[in-house]
Amino acid sequence: MTTTRRLPAWIIAVTGMVYFFLHAPMLVLVIFSFNDSKFSTEWSGFTLHWYTRLLERDDILVALQRSLLVGGASTVISTVLGTLLAMGLARHRLTARTVLEGLVYVPVVTPEIVCGISLLLLFVAMGIPLGTGTIILAHVAFNISYVTVVVRARLEGMDQSLEEAAMILGADEWTTFWRVTVPQLWPGILSGALLAFTMSFDDFVITSLVSGPGTATLPIVVYGMVRKNIEPSINAISTIVLVVTTTLIYVSDRLTRSPKPS
């Protein structure tokens, strides 16, 4: 450890303050979800009341169901499409490669509002009724890029001769993919899938624009609750969302970190 590596006190202080700023609001939210008081932000005692209230609300349960359905479906589709694209880019020489790679990044840099609006235009122009189906399509559209980037990174770290060895030994492309590529790749695929699910589960802006009347997902219901600014049930549901997200990210993080023998 040389002197230049030591962290000056002021840097540690700034870092500490930033971490506090980043996490304090959420922690406060979580704490007050257990607060036995409807309106004030003064601590009146511990309760799980607001959580049980959530279970009473049909609209939340239905929305949760829909969020899970949309999340599951869009994750599966975007993982398949994203993995295919990643494999095509990583394993083959294509003249249009630069264009394709640029195309993968377009969804990432496009603001959500623009994404949502343009998809709305498409659906209206094509006469496609807005509903759960359109939500799934929209989620797939923006999730493909994330899956592609994650899977591609993992693919490029993989020894390509493994696949060639399998083919020489008699396995065709399909067999090679399932018996050799996937066992090496699956942490990347799973990580990408988890990312896609999280993005889908949390999405509000795009979903609100392409969902029809009566097809609310969880974030849409939460938005309604936030706008109306009523009761600590919002804190409860926020806590749940936070816990779910943190778990998914933790698992995804461990997967990408796990040193695969290669």
Binding site: S161, E164, A165, A166, M167, I168, L169, D172, P183, K260
Partner: peptide, 28 residues
Amino acid sequence: RPYERDLGMVFQSYALFPHLTVARNIAF
């Protein structure tokens, strides 16, 4: 295709399947 040619090949990096045992590698 390579899998239609009935060849054997030893690669520079050996390309052993890391998720399979030695016996299963050879049996592939």
